[in-house]
Amino acid sequence: MLTPGNEAELAEIIADASGPLCIQGGGTRGLGVEGDVLSTTGLSGIELYEPGALTLVVKSGTPLSEVEELLAAENQRLAFEPMDHRGLLGSEGEPTIGGVVAANVSGPRRIQAGAARDHLLGVRFADGTGQRIKNGGRVMKNVTGYDLVKLMCGAHGTLGVLTEVSLKVLPRAEAAVTVTVTGVDLPGALRAMAAALGSPFDVTGAAYDPESQIVCIRVEGFADSVDYRSARLAEELARFGRSGIAADSTVQWQGIRDVSAFHGQAGDVWRISVKPSDAVQLVPRLEAGALQFDWGGGLIWALVPEGTDLRARINVPGHATLVRASRETRARLGVFQPQPAPLAAISAGLRRQFDPKGILNPGLMG
């Protein structure tokens, strides 16, 4: 394993490399790319934290837990609520902030706060030639030129290896409760979640468990405001089923975020993004052993028998990512949804520009 201790060492390793490199943060995702493992864990530490300016600059290999502890001490948080994949994948290691950004990992609060890329202000990275590049800044103003910040977020290390990220952080909510609606089928659940998201009550989570037939709607903010908004929302959602309010929702939403219902269950796991209105006609075709809905029904987690080609069953617009499967299944089906030809050509062109040797996580994204 190659573990550079600073950005210069990392750039030199990439510049000298003649074969493929498997870019790895904490090693919790297990994508299984061929090549010498290049770990960013040696690039760790807080570069700048200004709580008053809601700004954090941190090296990419810094453990996510360290970042969250630092923010919690100032009553702040990463609003995009990054998922912890270890329970779902049965992996070990420690998630890093660079891994979160590289994969654009975002949790239930995405429907209200946005994705990881929406909170990313700047990046430093080394491209496939070893060139060191800085883009963006520490504030959202006076930024000119190409927006490589958004390009790097979600590229999974195929365009460059992150060495530093600048993030916007937000205050933690004073209170959080979950409004529940029980005894609803999928069509009713989708209508209930749409009503909640279309309400003026600033919902920060909308999920559904079809096994228990429970809709969960999260409301966060100042305590008095949460009490008022959740009570009004429970009244409005009562037309869809039996509504109620759960006071302590932290553990519950961590379970939704990390898809804990699938932990320890055999089978492949897929992550499907569709329009919520298309979910009703899609679900019967999936023939899944278990399902979980998030983002108001726009995100579907599906547990299916090993080796299942779930993409062949999707009859609506959307895309499906193979999150957990054997190496053979990942090689046969691909982790990511194949891109349309025009978009694939653009992506290939970007990879040639940023990684002309084709050594950064080759084959991972087409």
Rank of each mutant, 00 (worst) to 15 (best):
M140D: 03
K141H: 01
N142E: 09
T144R: 10
D147S: 05
D147F: 09
D147T: 07
D147H: 08
L148I: 12
M152Y: 00
M152H: 00
M152F: 00
A155R: 01
H156T: 12
H156R: 15
G157K: 04
G160L: 01
G160H: 00
V161S: 00
V161I: 01
T163I: 10
T163E: 12
L167C: 09
K168T: 15
L170H: 05
P171S: 06
P171R: 05
R172T: 08
A175C: 05
A176C: 11
V177R: 03
V179T: 13
T180D: 06
T180I: 11
T182A: 15
V184H: 06
D185M: 08
P187H: 12
A189M: 13
A192I: 01
M193W: 05
M193K: 14
A194V: 01
A194T: 13
A195L: 15
A195N: 10
A196F: 03
F201N: 12
D202Y: 10
V203R: 13
A206G: 09
A206V: 13
A207V: 14
Y208T: 06
Y208C: 10
Y208S: 06
D209F: 02
P210D: 04
E211F: 08
E211H: 13
V215F: 11
I217K: 14
R218Y: 10
R218L: 06
V219F: 07
S225I: 14
D227S: 15
R229Q: 12
S230C: 09
S230E: 09
E235T: 14
L237W: 07
A238L: 05
F240P: 00
F240L: 01
R242Y: 06
S243G: 00
S243P: 05
G244M: 03
G244L: 07
I245V: 10
I245G: 10
A247N: 02
A247Y: 00
A247P: 11
D248Q: 06
T250I: 06
T250P: 02
T250R: 14
V251W: 07
V251F: 04
W253Y: 08
Q254P: 03
Q254R: 15
Q254M: 15
G255E: 14
I256D: 03
R257E: 10
R257L: 08
S260I: 08
H263R: 13
Q265K: 15
A266V: 02
G267F: 11
D268H: 07
W270A: 04
I272C: 01
I272H: 07
S273D: 04
S273G: 10
V274L: 05
K275H: 15
S277D: 14
S277I: 09
D278G: 06
D278V: 06
V280R: 02
V280Q: 14
L282S: 03
